[in-house]
Design a protein around this nucleic acid. Sequence first.
DNA 1: CTGAAAGCGCTTACAG
DNA 2: CTGAAAGCGCTTACAG
Lengths: 341, 341
Amino acid sequence: MSETVKIQDVAKAAGVSTATVSRTLSNPSVVSERTRKAVLEAVRATGYRVNRAARNLRTQRTGSILTLIPNIGNPFFSQIIAGIEQVFSEAEYSVLVSDTANIGPAGTPLSHVFQDGRADGVIVLDGILPLSSIESVKGTPNEHLVIYACEWAEGAGIPSIRSDNRSGAIQAVNHLADLGHRAIGHICGPEDNVLTGVRRAAFFEAAEARGLDVRPEWVFPGDFKLASGAAAAEAFLGLKERPTAVFSASDLMAMGFISRLSDAGVRVPEDLSVVGFDDIDLAPYFRPALTTIRQDRMELGRITAQTLLSRLRRPTEVQPDFLHIVPVELVERASTAAPAR
Amino acid sequence: MSETVKIQDVAKAAGVSTATVSRTLSNPSVVSERTRKAVLEAVRATGYRVNRAARNLRTQRTGSILTLIPNIGNPFFSQIIAGIEQVFSEAEYSVLVSDTANIGPAGTPLSHVFQDGRADGVIVLDGILPLSSIESVKGTPNEHLVIYACEWAEGAGIPSIRSDNRSGAIQAVNHLADLGHRAIGHICGPEDNVLTGVRRAAFFEAAEARGLDVRPEWVFPGDFKLASGAAAAEAFLGLKERPTAVFSASDLMAMGFISRLSDAGVRVPEDLSVVGFDDIDLAPYFRPALTTIRQDRMELGRITAQTLLSRLRRPTEVQPDFLHIVPVELVERASTAAPAR
DNA sequence: CTGAAAGCGCTTACAG
DNA sequence: CTGAAAGCGCTTACAG
């Protein structure tokens, strides 16, 4: 690999113009077979590779997609990103993954991503991204190249792919009711998160539909993470009257909850049934194995990527209210059982 | 955001040349204060943003770093990437995360990443990447812009940042020996992984140093994942004579192992002590809380990024044998205790 | 089917 | 301190 070889060098080696080399590489069918062979051979011989920056500048695209996540350190997102990456790498796009915090100082308009030429499309996995940032793309040609996955923001008018959170919560409550539980509690996600509201509302709705008892002190605050589940357990242990079952808005909180409870001698499922949400890899290996609502995160990522990809290919088609809901299912394991007594 | 505004438009608005606009933006000190103010105001008024592709083409750099991981779906890497991202986003670099599989068809030379103008530097978190791929950068100006983190390949002659795997394994064995265990086993990582070899060798070395009994049938194959821990448990349960303690090369395998064992009535730590490796977030919440070797993955990511960053800034400095080892520590929890009897 | 030429939007010696 | 001009390496109408 001596000096970098350019299209010029290939053209010279093949005895054709740079235009022909370019065509052979990007649109081979318009070139005669004889020429194509000569060019391809010259490419091989020289070790030529197209320079991206030059191509991007000329074609006015970047070949990359930006994925914005609230916290790159949170393993919850890795499966989703794997799904996204799978689809886009086949389509010859690079996937950039970034903390929402890293797109710039607070309040940075999302439109900058496009203006800077950093990406051809954006997948937002973070419902907390300020609406004002999202709105900066409204009315621009890039408006339909932004898409929410997993989380979303109410009223953003941006297409969204998400799990069926409502159904998941209802399935959890129904499962508990079917087992005979009459008094149930809930561990919530963070208050500023859209998933929290949907899952909680569906929890109340289903509990009411089944005539279950839910008291305000049985609804515990949380943030989807392990420690907040343990904190909920502390609150639970201080209760005079306890529910016989708890639905947690995430598996991680369910695990933190059960851990702390087991230290205090409360047995799951004998003394208390617990249902989680997500079905992370560990759920079947936790003891008791966690009954939970399975989210197909890989699939969610794939569908999101396919949706964005089709928009990148047919830029005219705009449907801002596009909404795709991925089904979830209850996975019954060992953390739920009929109530004692 | 009408049409895209270019440096030309700013120049016109400020009454200066494009050269002066460019200088104001990239090297403000060479411009007079009066001019600078006028330009900045024109930038503000027009909403100008530098086009990356144009800048990249002109400056012959990309402003991105490529991070290659064996499996983007594996949460083990997310903390490392978070550390990398943190450092590089401050330095105004984008971080591209990609499955090793996605750099191209098997055997794709790593040098392509540079030739394509896809990244200014590469962080390889995957020791399995073929040596021939790595070697393609040898002798090129990009040779010292490739760096291993976490894993590595023996003989690649590429700088490497890694945890002190040897010390970790020795600490695990010593902890077990100190508790009074005389017969110990090991669950290995995948055979084609460098970490597997180092941890296993150190395990044997320390066991011998402490005069412990290790039998071939107590060394279980694995792949770092949950299911292989459960498989090791099956093998363990079939043993006529069992060790009283096991050191697992990953936390995930330790958890899979303990889960399956507890189903079979083997209690940890009463009947068997188990030490993991990694200290993933769940380790303190698993029951029994896992005694393990803590790897500071965020720090590992940060150091890797800083090392690569300094090389990007001073391209002359080449030290192919650069090796940085991040300390690990034993975290004692509830999965280890003195042997019974 | 192919080539000559313009131009994508910047940055940077060079000259003054 | 500033400007005119070249050029980074491609792609793509346009013409033939």
